[in-house]
């Protein structure tokens, strides 16, 4: 079963990271899911693939009533991001899925009806959760052509999807980045290969550098906190992406 870790709390405003399933079959990429709660409502960020649904669901239900999930946020269209959508909808058919307009007719192949999807325009939008305003931040071509991150200005947390992701070797399962230089080696190959555009990367770095961010939360690997956030942005800005090989 996955572990849950509360990474931010201020009253009923909470961020919970759902991470590291020791029983996960090795052929499935490890993923992080994040639950944001506010005002009695919950939103799950990148709910994960269908095969990890039992582990995510059970971990989440220990923290929050899954039937009170009002929405999921899908950073993009990949199967490890949201192929579990139909299963979440079984428990809560009225749940909404926020996703780039680009994937409006693609993601329904994973489940959901026309009413399920709330499309995000390219420049992004504000998403409201129980009175809390969250910001869908454009991250197109990083790596998906219709890609968003989610910024919580109040908590100073940026959910960064695949940006910042690291494919960590077995045994390295710390929640937060402990040694940036060691950690970033596991992120380098991923970013070079998965991120397709240096222009898009530069625009993203400029955009997020102006934000106040305490925690940068990727969908794979450890969370960057404090000064490591800016270190990551600088490192990413320097990296040449869209290249094959090392």
């Amino acid at each position: 079963m996955k572990k849950t870790n509360t990474i931010f709390q201020d009253g009923d405003h909470k961020w919970v990271a759902i991470v590291r399933d020791p029983d996960r079959p090795g052929h499935l990429v490890d993923t992080n899911e994040y639950l944001v709660t506010h005002g009695g409502q919950g939103m799950l960020l990148d709910p994960g693939g269908a095969e990890v649904f039992p582990a995510v669901f059970s971990a989440l239900s220990g923290e929050f009533d899954p039937s009170a999930l009002s929405a999921v946020f899908a950073s993009h269209q990949d199967p490890d991001i949201c192929s579990s959508l139909a299963l979440w909808l079984e428990f809560n058919p009225g749940m909404r899925c926020y996703v780039s307009w680009l994937w409006e007719s693609f993601i329904p192949h994973f489940g959901g009806t026309k009413e399920t999807f709330v499309t995000i325009p390219d420049p992004g939008m504000d998403i409201f959760l129980g009175g809390l305003s969250l910001q869908a931040v454009p991250a197109h071509y990083l790596h998906s052509s219709g890609n968003f991150h989610l910024y919580d200005k109040q908590a100073k947390i940026l959910f960064s999807g695949d940006v910042g992701a690291a494919l960590l070797p077995a045994g390295q399962d710390a929640l937060f980045v402990e040694n940036f230089d060691t950690h970033i080696r596991y992120a380098e190959g991923f970013h070079k290969r998965w991120m397709g555009s240096n222009d898009a990367k530069r625009r993203w770095c400029e955009r997020v550098a102006s934000m106040e961010i305490n925690l940068l939360c990727p969908q794979h690997g450890a969370i960057y906190q404090g000064s490591d956030v800016q270190r990551f942005i600088n490192w990413f800005d320097e990296l040449q992406v869209g290249v094959l090989g090392s």
Partner: peptide, 15 residues
């Protein structure tokens, strides 16, 4: 299969 696994792991009878 996936729903049953989820329910049995979470032990929430209302599900």
């Amino acid at each position: 299969r996936l729903l049953s696994e989820a329910v049995s792991l979470s032990a929430l009878s209302k599900l």
